[in-house]
Write a protein that binds this DNA or RNA. Structure first.
Lengths: 163, 163
DNA sequence: TTCCAATTGCTTGACATCTAACAATTTGTT
DNA sequence: AACAAATTGTTAGATGTCAAGCAATTGGAA
């Protein structure tokens, strides 16, 4: 039983609160993106989260700790531990201990890990471009800006009485 | 150990593929929204998914089957079954059998369910408006449009060679 | 009408994330 | 210097979703 993503129920639900509808749309879209992502990466024996780690490691400029990875990918440290356990078992990453700070580990791609990312990446990119084919670069930039603004807005909640 | 959402790691990662970055931003934002949502709804003994069901039921115009709910919320039928089991056990919804079609069940709010939504809704809305306080109505509409367009783009994958 | 395909809701099993608590370590304050 | 507070990575336990498969039912095509 697999989700029929193509059929989206047209609702007669009134657009009675545009802000609510906005957030719902963002979440709904991300859900669909993730479902498709999982489906895609499964072909390579990876979860989306695992690929995201590999991909992030490929393009990072500095050394990253597990904690850094978690912040980047919006995932708890506990999850990062679990994801890395799997990737390490498959030989795609290594955790290096760091002299000068015995708490942290720097995470790096192994040659095998790099090879895998290089194999998946072009296909992944092609798919992504297909999904966003009807967007111009400036529209993409605008979406990114909007998303950053929403995440910024989330911080408003932090300092408010939410009940 | 809870996610520190306020700190977002600034990356020196080059914006080397704006479309990839776009999708990443949508997913990342939705993740944060969901985390905050769960945190909020837990105060009322609900998960976000459970609230979404109650909320959708409040504003629907026609009778909905479980399958309809799943399509609306982008959740599999298996998950809807599980969510409804919990809501039904708490007395917030009922599944009515439908004469003329013995396969489907129509899902409805109970008075208690309605009462709960009514209690949570204003606080929820206030929070949402706080998050999106820096957006105008037309910006919200634009975001919705963008999200719909992305979901539309996902259909392009369906008919393409993804491997 | 008949029979095959699709739909609906459910169950099961796998899996990924989260929260909470922990030990080890580092940082900061007095 | 000493002690409290914060950070890091891990483990354990709970929970929620998904994929796959099932039985019952419905719908459509021959």
């Amino acid at each position: 039983m697999s989700m029929s993503l193509s059929k989206e129920l047209e609702l007669e639900q009134p657009l009675q609160d545009i802000r609510h509808e906005t957030l719902l749309n963002v979440v709904r879209t991300a859900t669909m993106l993730s479902l498709r992502g999982e489906e895609f990466f499964r072909k390579y024996g990876l979860t989306e989260a695992q690929f995201n780690v590999l991909f992030a490691l490929k393009y990072k400029k500095t050394k990253w700790t597990q904690s850094d990875l978690g912040k980047r990918l919006v995932v708890t440290r506990a999850s990062i531990t679990s994801i890395l356990d799997k990737l390490e078992a498959k030989g795609f990453v290594i955790r290096n201990s760091v002299e000068g700070n015995r708490r942290i580990r720097h995470v790096e791609l192994t040659p095998e890990g790099l090879k895998l990312v290089r194999k998946i990446e072009p296909i992944y990119r092609r798919n992504i471009h297909r999904v966003l084919s009807c967007f111009s670069d400036s529209e993409c930039k605008q979406i990114i800006e909007y998303m950053e603004k929403i995440r910024g807005g989330l911080k408003n909640l932090k300092y408010s009485i939410t009940q």
